[in-house]
Structure formats: C-alpha cells, structure tokens
Simulated scan of single mutants.
Amino acid sequence: MELNGIKPAAGAKHAKRRVGRGIGSGIGKTAGRGHKGQKSRAGGFHKVGFEGGQMPLQRRLPKRGFKSQTLKYNAEVTLTSLENLGAAEVDMLTLKQAGLVGHMIKVVKVIKTGELTKAVKLTGIGATAGAKAAIEAAGGSIA
C-alpha cells in the first residue's frame, strides 16, 4: 500500500448535486423548484402549520383534556405484588428497592388486584377501600 494509492471505500463519497447549471444537466432553469410561488423563491419559507392565512388545523380543532404533571410522581401497587414481595413491613423505601415503583415516585397507593394471604403492615402508603379490607382480613394493618 502506498500513500498515493489510498482511496475511500466504494460509495463513501459522492458528488454534490449542482442544480441550476444549464439545460444539459437535466436540473437547470428552475432547478427542481417548479414555476413561481413562494416555495420557488430564495428564502421563501413559512412556519410549520401555516396554511396561507387560512385558520390552521391546530387552531380550528377544539382544545380537549389535559395531562397532569403530578401523575409521574404517583404509582400503584397491587395486592399480588405485595404477596410476592413477602415482607412483613412495607414502606416506600422497600418498594423502591424491590423495583415495584420508580425512584421518582412520591405517592403510592395499594389497589385491590389479586389476593393477599400474608399479614402486611403498610407505613406511609395509601390503599383503596377494597384493598384496605383485604389487607385487614389477612391480618395486616395500614398506618
């Protein structure tokens, strides 16, 4: 191998398309921009969603609903997951270490999905009415 024989890999380099350079090139005259109009001019662009002065679609449609930003800090834990966890006392830290809730979670609520047979003591965790009854029926408590 010599320095004067080094070439880039096949297909790695390709010539830049030179538009508007005569009729022989096949892309001369209007250079692929068509005839007249805003998009044919230099600097002829408009903002996203602009419809030529017509009321844009995003403003014609009614606003509907909203997504709460506090929901990303809330989580739910099922009775089944508490059963599988197997801990006698459960608090926020226990759930985070077990990977049942994310590390950003601030509020946890137990929901009644599945069955609970072990007595579990919840500290600093909420529960729905059905879940609370199931936990107390299994001999557990909610503090």
Rank of each mutant, 00 (worst) to 15 (best):
E2Q: 11
L3M: 15
N4I: 03
G5L: 14
G5T: 14
G5A: 12
I6A: 12
I6L: 13
A9Y: 08
A9K: 14
G11D: 08
A12P: 03
K16N: 14
R17C: 05
R18A: 12
V19L: 15
G20N: 09
R21C: 11
R21P: 03
R21Q: 14
G22C: 15
I23V: 15
G26I: 02
K29C: 06
T30H: 04
G32M: 11
R33A: 04
R33K: 09
G34E: 07
Q38A: 10
K39W: 07
K39P: 02
K39Y: 07
K39A: 04
A42T: 09
G43A: 04
G44V: 04
G44L: 03
F45A: 11
F45K: 15
K47N: 15
F50T: 09
E51R: 14
G52R: 10
G52N: 10
Q54Y: 07
Q58H: 10
Q58D: 08
Q58T: 04
R59W: 14
L61Y: 13
P62A: 02
K63Q: 06
G65W: 00
G65A: 04
K67L: 03
K67Q: 15
Q69Y: 07
Q69E: 14
Q69R: 08
L71S: 03
L71Y: 13
N74L: 05
N74E: 15
N74R: 10
E76A: 10
V77A: 06
T78I: 11
L79M: 08
T80N: 09
E83C: 02
E83V: 06
E83H: 11
E83P: 10
G86K: 13
A88K: 15
M92H: 00
T94G: 13
L95C: 01
K96G: 00
A98D: 09
G99K: 12
G99S: 12
G99A: 15
G99I: 08
G102Q: 03
M104S: 14
M104G: 05
I105S: 00
V107D: 12
E115G: 07
L116C: 00
L116E: 04
K118G: 04
L122G: 02
T123D: 15
G126T: 08
A127I: 08
A127S: 10
T128W: 02
T128C: 04
T128N: 10
I135N: 00
I135C: 13
A137N: 07
G140A: 11
S141Q: 10
I142Q: 12
I142L: 14
A143H: 05
A143T: 01
